[in-house]
Each structure stands twice: as C-alpha cells, then as structure tokens.
C-alpha cells in the first residue's frame, strides 16, 4: 500500500461515508452507526495489536463511554450528541490514562488478563448497582444535534450517523498520522525487542501507555455512539464476551491500515444481521468458525485481501 494511496483513501473517506449516510436505505442506517461505533473500538485494538498486545477487556472503555452518555444528562443539561460523545470519549480516555499506569507494565497473556480483570471489576459493580439498573441497565435520553431535535426517528438516526462518521473520520486521520510518527513506528519495534527500545533511550512503557489512552478514548467514543443509537445501556457492553467480540473483529479486519477496522466492523455487523435473521441459533458458531478460518487461512485479515489485489499496481512499499 503506497502512502499516497493511503492518504487518498483517507481524504475521500469522509465525503464517501457521509454520502452513504444520505443515500443509505433506512434499515441500513442503524447498522452503519453501530459499525462505525464498534469500528472505533477496533481501531484502538489494532494499535495495541501492532505491539502484540491483546486487550480482553476493551468493553471496559466501551461501556464507560456508554454509561457516561446515560449518566451525564441526568446531572448536566447536555443533550447534544457530538458533545456527549466527545465528553464520554475524554472520560474513557482519563480512565485509560489512570489504569494505563498499571497496564503498561504488562505484556502478552498478563496484559490480556489484567484488562479482563479491570473490565470484570466494572462489570461486577454495574450488575450490583441498583441506581444504574443492575443487569437491565437503563434508557438513554433523546439527544439533540447542534440545538436541533429531529422529530422523526429516522432523521435522528441520520444525524447520528453523520456525527459518527465525522468522529470516526477524525479518529482515522489521527491514527494514520500517529502510525507514521516515531512513536507509531515503535509499535512493531516494541514487539520485536523492547529492551532495544529502552537502550535507544525511549520508554517502551510510555509508548504502550499512549496507545492504551488512545485506544481507551476511541472505545469510549464508540460506546457513547452505540449507547445513543440503541437508546439503552446495560452491563453486557462491559462483559468479557463483548470484549472478545472486539478482539475477533480486530483479527477479522487485519491491522494493515486504519480503514481496515471500519471495513471489518461493517462486514461483521452485516454478517451478524443476516445470521440473526436466518440462523439465530448458529450465530456464535458462525463467528467462532470465521475466527478459526481467519487465523488459519488469512492471518492478515480481510485487509490482506485488498492489499493482495492492489499489489500489482503498488510500489511495493508495503504498510508496516
């Protein structure tokens, strides 16, 4: 993938997803929002994955963002969707920053387990909190868009879609820029040889911490968007099965490009929609089967298919 192609893809990205939002059939809008929301979480997991880190608890930040959207309007007169998403993202980012001081010390299975432990603590608190609706969760207030409160639900959904598209696009731009920076390029280096990174004068822990914060912030934004779209939050958003699903979509997408998580997320949501429609009893089986198939036959994820088809025209300066 040449850098030029990559940046072109990003530049045309926003108009394309925005246009999609205008012309998409009504039934697809919700699917689009959820794909973008979860795509944001996966984008963060991609950053961690590049350093060989797998978070089995990203639902923590996703759920934190979602519950922020639920709780915040109860105390402050904020109903603007974009503002809610931004505040929730920042809140989740702060949570990630705080937990990051511990998480950054761990690698491999220990990192995964500590993430799991943190998310399960949050889960344990949520299911026992009567005021937050325990296992049932609670409904989220209706949101406004720059002071405008659409009457028809479908207009509301389209407004939310546009909000999600803008947030996702900025996240992609940021991540793309970051991946080309010194710290971004350290991703793989830390996986390869952490000791050498230290001996070059950079703290690998700090680099990992930064990733944790970025991933947590984006997961918070994703959770906030999902909460507004669904109109409801519950502890399942924090549960380890949800976290596992995010990891699955990361593997499915591949980590070759910032667009990959969003595309992978769309594919996954379409797959889910059809599976629930036609084979509700086989949904987990299909997901599990796909995960196995990707690990065995397509280790680079779906993105590697796109990359392969581009290879002929490419300058060979493949993405790292």
């Amino acid at each position: 993938m040449s850098p030029a192609f990559r940046s072109n893809l990003l530049q045309i990205g926003l108009p394309v997803i925005l246009a999609l939002g205008l012309f998409m059939p009504d039934w697809a809008i919700f699917l689009g929002i959820i794909s973008l929301a979860k795509g944001l979480v996966v984008l963060g997991l991609m950053l961690l994955w590049r350093t060989g880190l797998v978070s089995f608890g990203q639902g923590l930040f996703y759920g934190a963002g979602a519950y922020m959207v639920g709780i915040l309007p109860q105390y402050l007169p904020i109903t603007d969707a974009l503002l809610l998403v931004l505040i929730s993202a920042v809140a989740a980012g702060f949570l990630a920053f705080a937990l990051g001081f511990l998480l950054r010390r761990y690698r491999e299975i220990f990192f995964a387990m500590l993430c799991l432990a943190f998310s399960m603590i949050f889960f344990g608190i949520l299911v026992k909190s009567e005021s937050l609706g325990s296992t049932d969760g609670f409904n989220v207030v209706e949101t406004s868009y720059l002071g405008f409160v659409p009457e028809e639900p479908i207009v509301m959904q389209r407004m939310l879609y546009i909000t999600a598209a803008v947030v996702a696009w900025f996240a992609c731009l940021f991540v793309n820029r970051y991946l080309g920076s010194t710290m971004g390029r350290l991703s793989r280096a830390i996986k390869d040889n952490e000791l050498r990174v230290e001996y070059l004068g950079f703290s690998a822990k700090r680099a990992v911490h930064f990733k944790i914060v970025i991933a947590g912030t984006m997961a918070g934004a994703g959770g906030a968007l999902a909460a507004i779209a669904i109109g409801h939050v519950d502890p399942e958003m924090v549960w380890w099965i949800q976290s596992g699903e995010f990891v699955f979509v990361t593997i499915l997408s591949g980590v070759g490009n910032v667009i990959a998580p969003l595309l992978g997320s769309v594919v996954f949501e379409i797959l889910r929609t059809f599976a629930i429609e036609y084979a509700p009893q086989a949904w987990q089986f299909v997901v599990g089967g796909c995960l196995l198939a990707v690990i065995m036959f397509l280790p680079g994820g779906l993105w590697s298919l796109i990359e392969r088809s581009k290879e002929g025209k490419d300058d060979g300066n493949s993405s790292r």
Partner: peptide, 25 residues
C-alpha cells in the same frame, strides 16, 4: 535489532528516538 524491520527501518527508529522529544506521536 528489531528483527522484523529492515536495516533502514532499524536505524531510522533509532534516529527518531534520538532526535524527537519525549512524546513524538
């Protein structure tokens, strides 16, 4: 070394760390 990177990548990363600040993101 960073075993999966090229010779060039290895040295570039070393240079990036040496020349950029504490948060070169």
């Amino acid at each position: 070394l960073f075993s999966s990177g090229t010779t060039f990548d290895n040295l570039m990363i070393a240079m990036g760390i040496a020349e950029e600040g504490t948060m070169p993101f």
